[in-house]
Nucleic acid binder design. Structure first.
Length: 278
DNA sequence: ACCTAAACCTGGGCGC
DNA sequence: TGCGCCCAGGTTTAGG
């Protein structure tokens, strides 16, 4: 579920609520949250619940960071907990859900709960998040000026995959997921199935500003909450009221009125207007 | 190296 | 109501 705007919203909420607080106790009801679901990742991260608790309990939260869709809780000794919410993960302060996979009890009395219906989400410990391979594999951030049209042109050169697929590739630009890939391509009048290397520099310029626009708008609206996403207070965002193509197959195009089409591209649903997008 | 399909897991929604 | 199928905001892995 959560893409850059949703993770950014949670990050800002947690900054306000939990900086300087100390973790007093941790309950892990689903240990898979520490190791990941897939077998390969499991073998890489062999940590027991007990070892995990020993690393974290007693530490003071210094700040929160975000890289792509990763949320990083950094402690005052420089170590960190790195969270990824995957499809249905939620991080909620004072949650009453009852479906928590992990709960962090602060000495202040506050709780931070990781709730996650599909159990894809993960938490892992890092002595130094800036040296973490998972973080360093990420491409540029879309909102810090590094995602230029020239950069995309270079990144897309000789690539036969669709522009939609490459926007979802976190090693090129990080933080964009299927909602914002679809919305940005619509706003830039580019069909998602276009071969990436054939998108012109002029079109990429439009795409860069479209990506930034849809992400910033969603941050202002506190994220897209059609399904499970909620902020750190457990409240829904409002961006689902402003999106125009994602999840709207068969509805009329907001620009020309023609029925929106859906096409599965490299395993992901793309929705687009065959009249407006070229 | 690059590309796609399948897998991971759970549950909502829809058609019959 | 119930069953079976399709779908899902993400990433990893297997196989071409």
């Amino acid at each position: 579920m959560p893409e850059l705007p949703e993770v950014e919203t949670i990050k800002r909420d947690l900054e306000k609520l939990l900086v300087r607080k100390v973790i007093g106790r941790i309950e892990i009801s689903d240990p898979a949250i520490l190791t990941g679901i897939s077998a390969k990742v499991k073998s890489r991260r062999n940590i027991t619940v007990q070892q995990f608790k020993e690393k974290i309990v007693g530490k003071q939260i210094h700040k929160f960071n975000r890289r792509g869709k990763y949320l990083i809780m950094e402690f005052s000794d420089g170590s960190s907990l790195i969270f990824h919410l995957r499809m249905t993960g939620q991080l909620i302060v004072q949650s009453t859900s009852g479906n928590e996979r992990a709960i962090f009890f602060m000495n202040s009395g506050q709780t931070l709960s990781f709730v996650d219906r599909r159990r894809f989400g993960e938490i892992f410990y890092s002595a130094d998040w800036k040296k973490e391979p998972a973080i360093n594999l990420l491409g540029v951030e879309p909102l810090n000026g590094k995602m230029t049209a020239d950069f995309l042109k270079e990144s897309f050169s000789n690539r036969t995959a669709s522009v939609h697929s490459l926007l979802l590739n976190q090693k090129i630009v990080c933080g964009i997921g299927n909602i914002y890939a679809n919305e940005a391509l619509f706003q830039a009048d580019i069909r998602p199935q276009r071969m990436a290397q054939k998108v012109s520099l002029a079109e990429l310029k439009k795409l860069v500003s479209s990506i930034q626009d849809v992400l910033k708008q969603s941050i202002l609206h506190r994220g897209y909450s059609m399904s499970t996403y909620v902020d750190a207070m457990g409240k829904k965002g409002r961006n689902q009221l402003f999106t125009v193509v994602y999840g709207k197959e068969g509805l009329p195009c907001s620009s020309c009125g023609k029925s929106l089409l859906r096409k599965v591209i490299a395993g992901r649903s793309a929705v687009y207007c065959s009249n407006c997008q070229k």
